[in-house]
Amino acid sequence: MVETSIKTLYDQDFDLWVQDTVNKLNTRNTEALDWENLIQEVEGLTRKDRRELKHRLITLFEHALKRQYVPLKDCYRGWEVTMRRTQSKLRDILTDSPNLRNYLRDIYHDCYQEALENMRIEYDTLFPNICPFSSELDVLLNDKFWKD
């Protein structure tokens, strides 16, 4: 590896920085680690999962609202496929990080409100202000929780 400052390596070639950091961790060379950027990257891992959970929960609510309250039967199948795919992705994230179930519970109502706002812009349909879907995560993520 060409002699480059750690900070410059991080800024110039992230992949190379990761490889170098992993090598240093494997050899227990902690004194040479770029601690500032390493901490930042580790913190970023959970932020990414949290953003993904929020995005997916909003998507789930949007499609569930459409499926339950928008009378376009030709669209039902597509909305249901999106909901099942979204449930699967949410389960995958929670399988890897079960502690995020608490975060999902915390953002549940805010995500519903954001989905509700989006659907009110998209459709001239009356949607309920209070979330009509189960707040039990096992139901929300594993079952057909919307009404036919």
Score class of each variant (00 low, 15 high):
Met83Thr: 03
Thr21His: 04
Phe133Arg: 03
Arg50Trp: 02
Leu137Gln: 06
Tyr69Cys: 10
Pro128His: 06
Asn29Lys: 01
Ser97Tyr: 00
Pro71Asn: 15
Cys75Asn: 15
Ile130Lys: 15
Lys144Cys: 08
Gln19Gly: 06
Ile130Glu: 15
Val139Ile: 12
Glu80Lys: 11
Val70Gln: 01
Lys54Ile: 12
Arg120Pro: 03
Val18Met: 08
Asp92Met: 05
Tyr112Lys: 10
Arg51Lys: 14
Asp92Asn: 07
Met1Lys: 03
Met1Gly: 12
Lys48Leu: 12
Glu80Ser: 12
Phe14Gly: 04
Asn142His: 02
Glu41Ile: 12
Met119Trp: 09
Ser88Lys: 14
Leu137Ala: 04
Leu116Arg: 08
Pro128Thr: 00
Gln68Cys: 02
Tyr76Gly: 02
Met119Leu: 14
Thr125Val: 15
Phe14Ile: 00
Phe14Tyr: 15
Asp20His: 03
Val2Gly: 07
Arg84Thr: 04
Tyr108Asp: 09
Glu114Ala: 14
Leu65Lys: 02
Glu41Leu: 08
Leu141Met: 04
Trp146Arg: 00
Leu65Asn: 01
Val18Trp: 03
Asn102Ile: 09
Gln12Gly: 04
Leu38Met: 11
Thr8Glu: 11
Gln68Arg: 06
Leu90Ala: 01
Thr82Cys: 04
Asn29Ala: 01
Arg120Glu: 11
Asp15Gln: 11
Lys66Leu: 11
Tyr112Trp: 06
Asp11Ser: 13
Leu25Asn: 06
Thr46Ile: 13
Asp74Phe: 15
Leu126Tyr: 13
Gln87Leu: 02
Glu62Ser: 14
Lys48Tyr: 14
Leu60Ala: 02
Leu140Cys: 05
Asn37Cys: 08
Leu90Glu: 01
Leu45Phe: 11
Glu31Arg: 07
Lys24Ala: 05
Glu41Arg: 08
Tyr112Gly: 08
Ile39His: 01
Lys147His: 04
Leu60Pro: 00
Thr46Trp: 09
Ile130Gln: 13
Tyr103Cys: 07
Asn99Pro: 04
Ser97Leu: 01
Leu141Ile: 09
Leu140Thr: 03
Val18Gln: 04
Glu117Phe: 13
Val42Ile: 15
Asp110Asn: 13
Leu65Glu: 01
Arg120Ile: 08
Ser135Lys: 13
Arg67Pro: 08
Met119Ile: 09
Leu90Tyr: 06
Thr86Glu: 01
Leu25Trp: 08
His63Pro: 12
Leu33His: 02
Val42Met: 06
Gln12Met: 10
Arg51Asp: 12
Arg28Leu: 10
Asp74Asn: 15
Asp148Gly: 07
Phe14Glu: 01
Lys54Ala: 13
Tyr76Trp: 15
Trp17Arg: 02
Arg91Phe: 00
Arg28Ala: 11
Lys7Leu: 10
Asn29Glu: 04
Trp35Met: 06
Pro128Lys: 00
Tyr76Ser: 15
Lys147Asn: 07
Met83Pro: 05
Gln19Leu: 07
Leu137Cys: 06
Thr59Gly: 05
Pro98Thr: 01
Tyr112Phe: 13
Glu122Gln: 14
Asn26Ser: 08
Thr8Gln: 13
Arg101Cys: 06
